[in-house]
Every structure is written in C-alpha cells, then in structure tokens.
Design a protein around this nucleic acid. Structure first.
Lengths: 216, 216
DNA sequence: ACCATGCGTTACCTGCGGTAACAACAGTCT
DNA sequence: AGACTGTTGTTACCGCAGGTAACGCATGGT
C-alpha cells in the first residue's frame, strides 16, 4: 500500500506549488496594483492560465487566498499592539500606528486588500447583497476589534452589540483617515495617530464652539 | 448672424440629452449595481454606445457625472442636518441618521457611489497613486465635514489640521459601520446612531475594564 | 445648390476571465 | 513488461467588456 505515502508526497508538492504561485501573484500585484491580470500572474509564475484556475478556481479564489496571507499578517501585528501591557490609550495609539505603518510600508498591497476589483460573483439574487463585496479585510478587522473590545471592556447590557458597532466604526475611522493621509500626506504619522486617539477620547464633545457658530 | 442663437439652442438641447442619458444610466445602475455595462446603459437610453462615449468620454466620465448628482444630493442633506439649530450631540446624531437613512433607502446607489468599479485611468505614473481611486465620495464627505468642524469648533493651534483628520475619520467611521450594518442588520438604526455618537463622545475612554483583562 | 456640423448607426479591435481538448509524464496494478 | 489512472502542462478557443473608426443622414447657415 504505497498509495498513502505517494498521495501525501503529491499533496505537499501541490501545496508547495500553491505557495510558489501565490508568491508570484504577490509580486505582480505589488507591481501592477489590484487590476493585475491572470495572464500576467501566470506569466510571472512561468506557466499559463489554466494552471492558475486549477489551483484557485477563479480569480476571486486566487485573490481571496492572496488576501488571507496579508490579512493574517496584519491581524497578528494588530493583535500584538492590542495586547501590549500598557494603558488603554497607549494601546489604542499603538494599534493605530501599527496599521498606518503597515499601509505606509506597502501601499500597493494595502490597496489590493481594500479594493479587490469586483471579486463577488455576479449573484443574480434579487435581494440587496450590499456589503459582501466591500473589502472583506475591513469586515474582518471590524469583527476582530469588536471581539477584543467586548472581551476587555465593561459596556453593561447590550455590551456585545455596542462593542461590535464600535469595532467596525473604529476600523472604518482608521481606514478612511489612513487612506486620505496616504494620498495627501498632510502631516506626520505621529500627529495623525494622536489626533485620531483624541477623537476617540471624546475631545469632540469637550471643546468649545467658535464664535459665529449656531446660536444654541 | 443666426449662429449664436442656433448654437445656444443646440447647446441646451445637448444638455437636455445629457440629462436624459444620465437618468437612463441611473435606472440601469439602480437595477444592475455598479457593474452596469455601457451596452446596457445605451440600450436603456434607446441608443448605442458611441453616443455615450461622445457625451462622456469614457466609462469613468459617465460614472463621475452620475456620481456627482447623487453626491451633491447626499451632501446637501447632510449639510442640512449639520446646520440644524440644536446642540452638538443632536446635530451629530442627526447627521449620522441622515447618512444611514440614505444608504438604507437606496443601497444600490450607495454601493455604486462607494465602489465605482475601477474608474481611475490606468495611470502609467510610477509613484504611488493610492487614494485617488477609492470612492471620491468618501474624500469629498471627509473634506466637507472637516471644513465644517474647523469652522465651528475651537481646536486651538493646528486646529485646521486636526479638523480635517477628524472629518475623514468620522466619515470613515460612519461609512464602515453603515456598510456593515446594511449587510447584517444587527440592530435598529437608532441604536446604531446612538452607539456611534457614544463612541464619538468618549465613552471608550470612560468605561472600566472587565476582569481578566491585562494587568495594567 | 452646397457643404459643414452634429446625431446616429454598424462593424470592428483589444484584452479580459474562463474553459475545452489534447500531450506528456509519474507512479500503480496485474 | 505493459495497460491504467491521475496530475501537470499546453494551445486554442468562447463570450463579453470597454473603446473606436468609418460611414449615413439630417439640419441649418451662406
């Protein structure tokens, strides 16, 4: 019964191949951005399209596999920042800074993760399928952060719901501010981090009106 | 010299035509989502592709024109909420609610605005052009809100910078939370609005730790 | 009468995602 | 050994998208 060992060897070989293909895809995405074509990826890997399709099914499959690697990496970095032994404010600042540093270091990857072209199947369903399309990374980050908040912070009844809302909200804040900052570079990373943390710390509620504002 | 009058009449006719085309495109986008094809739009308008291209240049042009209409509409609604004569907290809640109500009412339009396929030109520039691609609507909203904050709130030195950061951050928060909420519908709109406003009001900084958290 | 201009068409090109259909080679079973 | 099976790779193709060139046809100014 040599089949099992042979099958196993073939399986590990396939996984190895898969990793090679993903690395090639990575290089192309890093170069061409999110609209990298399957042809280009296949060429970079030194093979032709159908092999890619045999390994990943369709473009969405490849992109999902590719995205998961980076998402996992980013998530573990963020978790480290969230888990640091420090006060809450410092942890929040560290998390923001980790995210911003990551997108600053590899903008093309970030761009790919956030805007994976269209991916989603044509989905002839009539119902609103809004949401499934948009950057799975954002969703995952939001859910993850929501879980962490729910675990660590005492929000009373309905706390879990609130924590999820906050998780998605904070991630969205981080993302949009980071996206804008990465484009225009209007200030240093430190200042951006501090301002966002200030926002989360309720400074908006505390500061006074300027003259000429509404009467109330 | 009849040319001027004739030219003028033709110009207004062209503008009229343009509006008709935009309305047809609107209908198709409302039905097919953001991946509406030029062929489909032309068919809906009762004409053929080249006319569309003569009017709007390329797909990006049409989509930009289409987006601006909706963006303007949404922006004016938001401005109304921001300008209401009420306390800051109420204005913030009203703004959040206005946005959420809008995306709830017409998800396909919202989806189109946020993810206009690829739009951006192939841009052979080498430098990172990150940012220009992603939803111009988010940028515009962020800038707009930043301006309003800078006008109304006293943030001391560097206030304008801070206001812009906050503008983009808050808009991103609203957007991500709204996107998630629209997909999963985990709670009522009122609760979402209240939780987000709470977040902006610094509740994250105030609430206590749960037992079992980090030692610090 | 003439011709410039704008609206509209048909027919085409390119490049994409995706899929047959077939060639070559490994190891397996008898 | 030799037939059998499954994996790896190829070429050639389909359908559809965005985009364009070349041509008909009306209209209105000179």
């Amino acid at each position: 019964m040599e089949t099992t060992r042979g099958a196993e060897r073939q399986r590990t070989a396939a996984e190895h191949r898969r990793r090679e293909l993903l690395e090639a895809a990575d290089r192309v995405v890093l170069r061409d951005g999110p609209q990298a074509s399957m042809n280009a990826i296949a060429a970079e890997a030194g093979i032709t399209k159908p092999i890619l399709y045999r390994h990943f099914g369709d473009k969405g499959g490849l992109y999902r596999a590719l995205a998961q690697r980076h998402t996992d990496a980013l998530l573990s970095a963020l978790r480290a920042a969230l888990d640091a032994p420090a006060h809450r404010r410092e942890r929040v600042e560290a998390t923001l800074d980790t995210y911003l540093a990551a997108i600053e270091a590899r903008p093309q990857v970030y761009r790919f993760l956030m805007h994976p072209a269209d991916d989603a199947a044509p989905s002839p369903e009539q119902g609103f399928d809004v949401g499934r399309h948009s950057a799975p990374l954002l969703r995952r980050l939001g859910e993850e952060l929501g879980k962490v908040i729910a675990e660590r912070v005492d929000l009373g009844p309905d706390g879990e719901q609130t924590a999820r809302i906050w998780g998605h909200g904070i991630v969205g804040m981080m993302h949009a501010a980071g996206d804008w900052w990465l484009g225009d570079r209007p200030c240093s990373r430190e200042q951006l981090v501090r301002s966002l943390a200030d926002l989360l710390w309720g400074r908006l509620a505390e500061v006074g009106d300027l003259p000429g504002g509404p009467v109330f």
